[in-house]
Amino acid sequence: MKNPSRAERVNESRMEPGAAEALARAGFSRRAFIKGTGALIVSFSMGGALRTLEAQRAPAGAFGENGASDSPPANEVDSWIAIASDGSITAYTGKEELGQGMSTAQTQLVAEELCVPFHSVNLIACDTSMTPDQGVTSGSQSHPANFNRNNLAGACATAREALLQLGSKRLNIPADELVAVDGTIRSKSDASKKVAYAELVAGKKFDLKVDTAAKRKPASEWTVLGKPIGRPDMAAMATGTFE
């Protein structure tokens, strides 16, 4: 900048008060902004990207200023999962199907972590009045966001551990001698001793925070995740009934 003082004068007169305030809040003086405009464009856009990443990886409930304030809080298990009295699972996600297969992958994730059949899971995406608001779906960030220890995967793992505890009480068997299989909690040694998820939670909420320490299923035990499966939306797309 050959003549910063002149540039500053010009920009000062053109800058709206709101813009100047925003710049100040961001920690930049107008002078520094003018001096380093080229570099700052980069750092601003990086800042945006990082904030987005942060929001997507954020621990539960931290979607903050970008999230709709009345969306279900991300740190509650009930914001992500509901088990109906017929045993069917409804899962809620803030990551949208765009043709990349996210609805299928997230349904697989829920089925895997909750130990239920793929087709018993109904996934509802991106209606922020009933799903957590996870911001944008872009940049290959949906897997890191929802398959990590928080969010959808964390909620599923927390729910499975809670179901094991509830089953333990109901069956009067220690939780470590129980296993979650096909929508039921049952004894490892005696398969006849079992109770269905629906009996344990039907109509009730989990009323639990997402526990990031909840035990995830190891990949070696996966039966649904990581396996090829037909997209549930495919038939609707091919017959003109997809909405």
Binding site: L98, Q100, G101, G230, M234, M237, T239
Partner: peptide, 14 residues
């Protein structure tokens, strides 16, 4: 249509 479903021949499907 069956062939497209079986081959999973769509991404966004538009």
């Amino acid at each position: 249509q069956k062939a497209f479903i079986e081959e999973q021949a769509a991404q966004c499907g538009f």
